[in-house]
Every structure is written in structure tokens, then in C-alpha cells.
Design a protein around this nucleic acid. Sequence first.
DNA 1: GTGAAAGCGCTAACAG
DNA 2: CTGTTAGCGCTTTCAC
Lengths: 334, 334
Amino acid sequence: MTIRDVASAAGVSPSTVSRCFTQPEIVEAATRERVLRMATHLDYRPNRAARGLITGRTGNIGLLLPDLANPFFPSIVKGIQHQAHLSEYQVFVVDTDEDPAVELGLVRSLAKQVDGMILCSPRMRPAELAEAATVSPTVLLHRRAGGLPSVGIGNADAMRQAIDHLAALGHDRVGFVSGPRRSWSGRQRVAGIRKAAAAHGITLEEIGHFAPTFEGGSAAAQGVLLSGVTAVVAYNDLIALGLLNALRDRGVDVPRDLSIIGVDDISVSAMVRPALTTLSVPKEESGREAVDLLLQVLAHPGARNPPAETLPCRLTVRQTTAPPNQRAATRTTA
Amino acid sequence: MTIRDVASAAGVSPSTVSRCFTQPEIVEAATRERVLRMATHLDYRPNRAARGLITGRTGNIGLLLPDLANPFFPSIVKGIQHQAHLSEYQVFVVDTDEDPAVELGLVRSLAKQVDGMILCSPRMRPAELAEAATVSPTVLLHRRAGGLPSVGIGNADAMRQAIDHLAALGHDRVGFVSGPRRSWSGRQRVAGIRKAAAAHGITLEEIGHFAPTFEGGSAAAQGVLLSGVTAVVAYNDLIALGLLNALRDRGVDVPRDLSIIGVDDISVSAMVRPALTTLSVPKEESGREAVDLLLQVLAHPGARNPPAETLPCRLTVRQTTAPPNQRAATRTTA
DNA sequence: GTGAAAGCGCTAACAG
DNA sequence: CTGTTAGCGCTTTCAC
């Protein structure tokens, strides 16, 4: 079923059929209607590859993300897909398995097949990011770098909210459990929490680097216990959850003996008991925004000052935060 | 950067360059090496759309699934992607949001852009499935229907394992909490558990139909309590988890007062306490198998007896199953 | 407002 | 083994 079949069936030239789909307004109403009716009747659908060959646009966008197994990312995928479909875009999803080394290669191999890419929490170095942007129009999601268009979240403000909450509860020794070294968000969060802690006169302990997974969180338990803090903020919910579990297995009561705050507000966080106090980051929304931004970039290539949006996070207080337990030390040794 | 650029740079014809990529063995070693070196040097990459226009193959496969927010599906996506990338295939992921009405439309709109599709847990009716298979080579994942190639899991056997386990523990009144009415797996599981229960002389209570989500599980709590069973098997882990939580909020102790078994073994199930006893279904593996099967179908179109694989499930006993509590009724009323 | 012709980048006969 | 030719399905000048 090609455009020529429709053309001859409708008694017009292929060009006219083409115009009916790409610039309907310039073709006479009667003709257009006849053609479109015929097209529907024959169940004709333009071949996007053929169209792309001449227009240079594929109608696809690429999405690179570190790990679909972290429930944070599927939410983003849903937002991105929803918004992309509204504009008739299809999305290629690529999971990099948290391996920075393969990111650029995947971008390159995808470049020809997409009109643009959304790089979600990329672990690449800035220079690689710049190169990626060279290969295909790029929007950064949850990262900012080198003037590339981006949509991010208010990491520093999120940390401030966390510290404000803990300070109000009376904590004065707080830990931060770091995620991957290469994570840009992680660096933002550390910087933000340092500043917020200082503002409150709170002592901040930075605890290791851990994989941004449940297992990573379990591995952090030891360090958290040794640090002597009464509360911790974790790089993300998965780490917070792993920590929560490992602590419980060692007989530590959360939140009585230790308060925990995560980041992301993945669905699991509300499913466990005690339910995790966390910083809710807009997931589907940031995905949608990223698509809008990308389409905008595609529509106005080479525009100056590509926008860098920042979406706010919001503290969701659940059950893992409480005032510090003054007698905790006594109890543990007793 | 087209094939002609490479051709003239290497002093050969475009066809030769083409052959170097598609059938390297038929071109003389020296020539081939020179061409490939030139191609690398110029960073030439074949345009897949152009190639597809003539070969009729896109190098893409489509993946339709009901809900990325259920952690079960991201695991499958990972398996599928991994395997697809090994054969240089890219994958379009489409989330249908558990809406059977849109499935066929999405298949149609994707058909032209892919070489084949994997329909994962589709909710369509058999006739629609048959139509989908008409539009594009199709492999069913976690469903079987009308002789289409498929990879599924041993649902009935899984239910048998669950019932064996509960029977061994001493339960004789067991509930099954159903998922979506349209779910084929759900029907398989009901049939399987009926048979298994009968074989053990166990009374089976079938409890409602619920959304295959955490909320769906919460909604099931009331019915489970009223049914008077001492153990339930849920359609999936998400329902089991929602149920677990809702019960705890009502003061029901799991597993003392009620045993719960889920299906899927999503990662969350091991993160909660009590950790969920569940039937582990091979997720990444079934994804990989589906890709293999699809590629096989693409390689031998029209082959007879398309294979219908069945992968086994395995009971993972964790903390939500225990012998029935004889004094439960007394306690509740006391 | 519509048609004819050219060509996007590539592969597949067919010669040589 | 390699080059020449034709054309995949579509959009887009350029005439009419």
C-alpha cells in the first residue's frame, strides 16, 4: 500500500496525496476529502522511513537512562512516552546499566535513527556530553552541563528541606549517604546539604559512595552505624530502603534510633513499613517537560539561550523521621 | 556522510562499500580493509532508514506492555533490550496503561516501523491478536493464543507449587485474589489453583477481580478478611504487597493470622518486611527468549508449528507463609 | 490547485 | 570480485 496506490484510486497524482498529509490546507477541500477517504479506506499509512529519507526527520526520539530496574526511571519513561505520542513521536529506550563507558557509543549508534535525544541522568563527562550534543540534538534530564538545554530538579533546595525538617526535629549530627561518584545529581546534593547543614550549625558526615541500589543501601549500614549520626539523608530511595532494611536486621529501630530520608519518592517507598520519608521529585512531569523542550529545540535549531528548567521537589514526611533518641546509645550498650 | 563519499574516498563503487557492510566475505580482503578503514576514518554509518526502504527490514522491534510502573515489566524490558542489541536491533517500547482498547491501534501504528513485535501480557481478545499478527510478525510473551509463537510460563505448575506449600503447612481453606478480568495469565492461574486445591482437598475461595497494583491489593483486604481463609495466593506481587500492607494496618499479623503468596518475584518483594513468599517467574530470561523466538520467526517466515515455549516458575519461600493459626478466630473476637 | 520529475541513501540484480 | 543501473516510498521544486 503506497502513496501511488492511493493516488490512482483517488484519481490524483502522488504529489497531491502527499500534500494531503503534510500540508492539507493547500489542497482543495473536495480533493482532500476524497483522497483522505480513499486513504482510510485502503488503510494507507505513510512510510516514515521513506519520508525520513527525504525530510531528514525520523519521527523518533531516543531516551538513554542508567537503569530501568530503579523504579524512578520507568516513571520518567511513562511521562516521556505519553508526551512524545501526543506529537506522533515514537521513543527508543536504551538502558545503559549504569555503565558510563557505553553511553557515548549508544548515543552515536542511535543518532541516525532519531531526531533528537533525551539523556536522563547521564554519567558521561562534560566533554562527552558536548560531543553527544554534536551528534544529535540533545536535551539533558536531571543534569545540567555546558549550556545544553536541560530540565532538572532543585537538588539544593531539596536538601535544604530535608535539613530543615531534621533540624526542626532536633537532630544536630546528620549523615549523607552518597550514590555513584559519577552522578551529577549526587554532587549537587552533597553541595546542597553541606550548605544547609552549615546554616543550621549541624555536623554533616559524608558516608562513602554506594551503588544507587537496594544492595548499595545495605552496604552502607555499617558506615552509618559507625558514624554516630542520629539521622541520614540518602542519595536516593533505593539506597534509603536498603539501609532501612539492613538496619532493621541489626536490631536498629527506625525512626527511634535513626531517622532516614530518601530522594525520589518511588512507589515502593510508600509500600514499606515504616514508610519512607522522602523528597518527592516530579518524575512523569520532568519527562514530559523534557519532551516539550526537545521538540522546541527541534523546531528552532540553533536558537540562543537554550532553556534550563528547574522543577521543585517537595518533602513528603512519612514514618522514617522522628526526633533523635537521647537514650539510644545507652540502649544499644545495655 | 553517505556511502558515495566513502566510495570515492576509497576509490571504489558504492556497491562495493555496501557489500563491505552487508556481505563482507564476498569482497576481496584488501579492498574490504581499505574501505572499512576509510569508513571508520570518516565515521560513516549506514543510514538504516535508507537501507530499510529497499530491504524492507527496519532493524527495529516493537514491544507492547501493559504498565511500566509494575516492576515486573522493566525487568522484561531489560532482558529484551539486551538480547535485541546483541543482534543490532533497536527496540520501541510502548506502554498501554492497561488499556486493552488502545493495544491494537498501537500495534498498527508501529507496524510499519518494526520488523516484528513482542506483545507482552496483551489484554486483547484472540481475534484482535490474530489481526495484530497479520499486520506484523508477532511473538506473544506471557500469553498463548491461536497457534501464535509464544513464550510463556508454567502458570498451572506455579499454582501447584503454591498449593503444595500451603498444604504442607496445614492450610485447608485458601483464597485466590484475582487480577484483571482480561488477563490470560490470570485465567490460567485460577484454573491451575482450582485443580491443585481439589487434588489436596483444599477449599478454594476466589476473591474478586482487582487492579494488578498495590492499590488493588489494598482494596482486596476486606474481601480476604470476610472469606475466612487462612492463606491466600494473589494474582501478582503488587496485589500481594498491597494486601499485606492493608492487613497490617488493620492489625492482622502476617504470617501468623494469614499466609500470603505472590507471583512474579519483583524486587520489592524482597525489600519489605515480612518479605513476600512468591513464585519467581523468569523475567529477563523470558524477555531474551522472546527476542530469540522473534528473530527466528523473522528468519523463517511462514514456518510451520511456531514454537510455544514454556518457562518454569519456582517457589521462593520468604516470610509471609506459616502454618495456620488455630487460635486466630478466638483472638480476633477476644 | 495540481502534476511531472528528480532524488533522499541505500541495496540488488545484472553484467563484465 | 567489482561496477553499472534501477528503484524502494516519499517529498519537493518547478511548471502548468
